[in-house]
């Protein structure tokens, strides 16, 4: 569903990533790790088409990113749930509306979705925070709200950028558990993190592969973790 073929990316001052090839198979679970500034976020952006590779070809759901127009990108985003490191919300709308926003903008917000929304909010543990405004949420609550928003369209892929970056260990495990559950439901998961404990914990629950960015290249990390 996401295929990167020998891609490179540079922001203008030398290449940040080069010779990267990756095929995300349906139902797979990947971790992406590497030191800060190694290009994890850039890599994720290449995966959901927010950036276009400067060399090589990236294909989303069989379509070349370079050939997609702005509407095409919008359509691809509906099939890829993204949880950002610093999740942005519409601060004037309550959490429930923010989580339901992908349905709203794609014209799929119908009445039967309301009960789904409630269920989803309970699932991420925000059932009693539905009417709060995003600025009133704690870091962990924001991450979970972002996760709920990322999965409400039932996307085929969920990309998460340091989803546990701002939360304590207990909350990290809860978020991880939610992502593992999604994977069991058949979603493809890619999590960028530098938290090795998180990766170790995950390995008890799910068949996860670990990708590491080092020296601008993507490597499959061994069993040394």
């Amino acid at each position: 569903m996401i295929e990167l073929e020998n891609i490179a990316y540079n922001y203008g001052g030398g290449e940040l990533l080069s010779e990267i090839s990756l095929k995300l198979a349906p139902g797979s679970f990947h971790f992406l790790t590497g030191p800060s500034g190694s290009g994890k976020t850039t890599f994720l952006k290449l995966c959901y088409g927010a950036l276009t590779p400067t060399a090589g070809s990236a294909r989303l759901f069989g379509q070349d990113v370079r050939q997609m127009d702005r509407d095409g990108h919008a359509m691809a985003r509906r099939r890829i749930g993204v949880v950002h490191q610093d999740c942005q919300f519409l601060d004037h709308l309550p959490v429930a509306d923010n989580v339901a926003l992908p349905l709203t903008v794609s014209g799929r917000d119908s009445l039967d979705q309301v009960s789904n929304l409630k269920e989803l909010l309970n699932w991420v543990g925000l059932g009693n925070r539905a009417s709060a405004l995003p600025p009133e949420l704690s870091g962990g609550e924001r991450q979970r709200a972002a996760l709920a928003r990322a999965v409400i369209m039932s996307p085929e892929v969920v990309l998460a950028d340091e989803p546990t970056g701002n939360v304590d260990w207990e909350m990290s495990q809860r978020l991880l558990q939610l992502l593992v559950e999604l994977n069991r439901m058949g979603k493809t998961i890619l999590i960028a993190t530098h938290d090795l404990n998180l990766i170790r914990t995950a390995k008890h629950h799910v068949q996860a592969r670990v990708l590491r960015i080092s020296n601008r290249k993507l490597q499959l990390a061994g069993a040394d973790l």
């Binding site: 927010a50 702005r70 509407d71 919008a74 359509m75 691809a76 985003r77 509906r78 993204v82 950002h84 942005q88 919300f89 519409l90 926003l101 992908p102 903008v105 794609s106 928003r149 369209m153």
Partner: peptide, 16 residues
Amino acid sequence: AQVIAVLRLIGARDSY
């Protein structure tokens, strides 16, 4: 700008 960025991220089309 932030609202627009959020909307784009979650798959809103320009026309919307």
